[in-house]
């Protein structure tokens, strides 16, 4: 059976085509203002990459904040459920999932088989998501990759007091004026966001191994800070972690088509 999962975020749209339980193709693009059109084009390209036609796709499931904008999808599923299904696919038995995307973060507790037991979400405050890191890297005049790497070199812990992205930008500027090293500021930023994310996770209870999804999983500085905060020695991160929700949606689609 062939199905498609589409994750419609505010920032990016991701499409995954699954064939007999395996990922056949995946594709991402910037959401822009015309979510539906962008998603439709991405789907067409992903189908071409997988060598399948629209008629062969048994079911399309949309997820993400803009999931209801896709009138061509056969069904919708929440981000939390999609993430839980993806976790069961990649890491069966893992019950604690953290997801940190560009504009939202979540802590999810599952039964390890794809069923959601509990979740805590931050989706309306920029300070709790990936965009916080982007703003801070910009304030430091660094590329995101460099910012993430530099953080690992820091051996000093300095606190960031500001809890809001706008105020944190000013705080970073004053840290620069005080000649604080960039690597230490980078670490302070990652520590701050990791502490916010870890408190979400603690609300749903941290148990056993932890899976990390979302674009922030690419950031080694953040991962290090998060492991420190959670007191775990590793995180289970799938290949291309930003596609997790789209993969989860495609899995939901195959259940619904059957």
């Amino acid at each position: 059976m062939i199905t498609a999962g589409i994750d419609v975020g505010n920032r990016n749209i991701k499409v995954v085509i699954m064939k007999e339980g395996k990922i056949a193709s995946r594709l991402a693009g910037t959401a822009g203002f015309e979510q539906r059109e962008v998603a439709f084009k991405l789907l067409a390209s992903a189908m071409a990459d997988a060598g399948v036609t629209r008629d062969e796709v048994a079911h399309i499931t949309a997820t993400g904040m803009g999931r209801n904008a896709l009138d061509f999808a056969d069904s919708q599923v929440t981000d939390v459920t999609a993430a839980a299904r993806a976790a069961a696919y990649f890491f069966p038995g893992v019950t604690t999932i953290i997801e940190v995307g560009a504009e939202e973060s979540r802590g999810i507790k599952t039964d390890g088989k794809g069923r959601v037991l509990d979740s805590a979400i931050n989706e309306k405050c920029a300070a709790g998501s990936g965009s916080f890191t982007e703003s801070m890297a910009r304030a430091l005049g660094m590329e995101l990759d460099e910012f993430a790497q530099k953080s690992l070199e820091s051996t000093v812990q300095i606190p960031m007091n500001a809890q809001c992205t706008v105020f944190a930008e000013s705080e970073v500027v004053s840290l620069i004026h005080q000649s604080t090293e960039k690597k230490d500021i980078a670490r302070a930023v990652h520590d701050a966001i990791a502490s916010r994310v870890s408190s979400l996770v603690r609300r749903v209870k941290l148990e056993g191994e932890v899976a990390l999804f979302g674009g922030m999983a690419y950031n080694p500085g953040f991962c290090k800070s998060l492991m420190d905060k959670l007191k775990v020695d590793h995180l289970k991160i799938p290949e291309q972690p930003e596609f997790a929700d789209a993969i989860g949606a495609a899995i939901v689609a195959s259940k619904r088509a059957a």
Binding site: F33, E103, K124, C125, A126, S131, S135, C164, T165, V166
Partner: peptide, 18 residues
Amino acid sequence: SDICVVFAKSEAMARLKE
């Protein structure tokens, strides 16, 4: 609609483009 300044800013930019 958004009460986070960062997100409100993105929304303001979107309205201008519209």
